[in-house]
């Protein structure tokens, strides 16, 4: 996993020593397969296929990428391995939606919207609450006021978990306790934000598997109840995906989008060996940009997604 190496030195130093790995650039492997060849042959394509598939890119997206490269190479007349590398990265990056804010570095929100409401959704165990804690930290550091809504009233001790994050980051958490109606918690949180003139509202929701119809309906309800107070809320529906999830993430994106019109993705747990390549297909298919990546358990371990760095990381392997 190599996302780190492409972020600034300062950020890189934040990483725990224990997490550092030796890496080998797979491009060198690809280049070797290329020596003395004038066109992209089966050996190169096989190598490429394996790299992409083992990064969870999936068969159909992999084939799509390979096709695009083949056609470009035949059109542009392939010159050398360095060109191939460039073309490869360009083609994959092209499938990734640009962030609304461009490939920015900062934690920022759409100007002129107050409060800006972010609703966080996803299946169980992907890291929703942790991502919320980190988001709150970053927004607060950027000078915004934040309030969190503890609308995961289902999972044991979920409310406690977000409250601890609230204390750590020093932002208020609105809660009604376990078993409360999540839509009502969201409503209260929004109301409090409006009266306190808060900049950003982040609503946590319970993890739910995308094939549970009633639980998906509940999300739709939370959303529509918030719209009673603010007709254009939530402004951002952030689907959190576990970076180690395979092709099932596509189904998750599909079902959550159907229920709530997801418009941003966060990819978590990228500090492990998982590559999260499945977001390429998701981004391409559903036109939803990846906004954030989670790279650890600390407050500071959330970064703005950078397409270039992400694509580079797909081609790096631990030795």
């Amino acid at each position: 996993m190599g996302i780190f190496s492409f972020f600034s030195k300062e950020k890189k130093q934040d990483l725990d020593k224990g997490l550092e790995k030796t890496r080998e650039n797979v491009f060198s492997k690809l280049s070797k397969a290329f020596i003395g060849k004038s066109k992209v042959d089966d050996e190169v394509l096989d190598e490429l296929e394996e790299i992409l598939v083992t990064s969870d890119v999936g068969v159909s997206t992999t084939l799509k990428i390979i096709e695009r490269i083949e056609s470009r190479v035949s059109k542009d007349k392939y010159l050398g391995t360095s060109e191939l590398n460039r073309i490869l990265k360009e083609e994959i990056a092209a499938l990734l939606q640009e962030n609304n804010s461009g490939d920015g570095e900062d934690f920022d929100i759409r100007p002129g919207v107050k409060p800006y409401v972010i609703m966080v959704v996803g299946v169980n165990g992907v890291g929703k609450t942790t991502t919320i804690g980190k988001l709150a930290y970053n927004f607060k550091k950027a000078g915004k006021s934040v309030v969190l809504g503890a609308a995961d009233t289902f999972r044991a001790a979920a409310v406690d978990q977000i409250k601890i994050w609230g204390q750590r980051v020093d932002v208020p958490v609105i809660s009604q306790g376990m078993g409360a109606d999540p839509a009502s918690v969201a409503f209260d949180t929004l109301k409090s934000a409006i009266s306190q003139n808060t900049d950003i509202v982040i609503i946590d929701t319970a993890g739910r598997l995308h094939n549970k119809i009633n639980l998906m309906k509940e999300l739709t309800k939370i959303k529509s109840v918030m719209q009673k107070l603010l007709p254009d809320a939530p402004h951002e529906i952030l689907l959190v995906l576990d970076g180690s999830t395979g092709q099932n993430a596509i189904e998750q994106a599909k079902q959550f989008t159907a229920a709530t019109e997801v418009n941003a993705l966060a990819l978590t747990k990228l500090d492990g060996t998982a590559k999260g390549g499945v977001v390429i297909g998701i981004s391409d298919q559903f036109k939803i940009p990846v906004k954030y990546i989670g790279i650890g358990e600390k407050m500071t371990d959330l970064q703005i997604f950078n397409r270039k760095a992400f694509v580079e990381s797909l081609f790096e392997q631990s030795k």
Partner: peptide
């Protein structure tokens, strides 16, 4: 292990 795990299941 999460049954939705992708290719990384092998490594982990």
């Amino acid at each position: 292990v999460d049954s939705m795990t992708g290719q990384d299941a092998v490594n982990t």
